[in-house]
Amino acid sequence: MGLPVLRDDLTEAELDAIVDQATQASAFLKAISHEGRLMILCHLVTGEKSVTELESLLSARQAAVSQQLSRLRLEGLVVPRRDGKAIYYSLADDKPRKMLETVYDLFCGANRP
């Protein structure tokens, strides 16, 4: 699927759909725009992690990690699972993984000038 072409002959419904998609994309980009949230997603690509594991991996306080996880959960990017007192998080779907691959290709990949 390519980028939408904004033409003068778009129907109101087509234009509304494009605006809705732009709104969703904007919310997604805002959610991943924080380096802490981006790093959490990077760690979750390899599999489910507990909040305690993420604290250690990020060298961050529990409150900070929980705050970022809350935002990612609100945006539907991660899902929690409780096991006793521990809470584990995993990616909600494949969207974050695809995004991280694109970001890697743009900023770290072999095609970088």
Rank of each mutant, 00 (worst) to 15 (best):
E12S: 15
T46G: 15
L72Q: 02
M99P: 04
S33T: 10
I32W: 01
K95F: 11
V19D: 09
V79I: 09
R81V: 08
L69N: 01
S66R: 06
S59P: 03
Y88D: 04
I18Q: 02
L6G: 03
R37N: 02
K30L: 14
S33G: 12
K95Y: 06
L41D: 00
L29D: 09
G109S: 04
H34K: 12
R73G: 06
T52Q: 14
K85D: 15
L106S: 05
M99A: 15
E48L: 04
K49I: 05
D9F: 04
A64H: 01
K98P: 01
E35R: 09
L10G: 01
M99N: 12
A27F: 04
L74T: 11
T52E: 14
L100G: 11
D94L: 13
G2K: 06
L69T: 01
L58D: 03
A17I: 05
L74M: 13
E101C: 15
Y88H: 10
K30A: 12
T102A: 13
H43S: 05
V78S: 00
R81K: 15
K30F: 11
L38I: 04
K30G: 05
E48F: 03
K98H: 10
A110M: 05
I32Y: 00
C108Q: 09
Q62R: 15
N111D: 05
T23L: 12
G109C: 11
R82I: 08
D8R: 12
F28I: 02
A92Q: 04
D105P: 01
M1F: 07
K85Y: 10
A92T: 03
L77K: 00
E101M: 12
L106H: 13
G76D: 08
L6K: 08
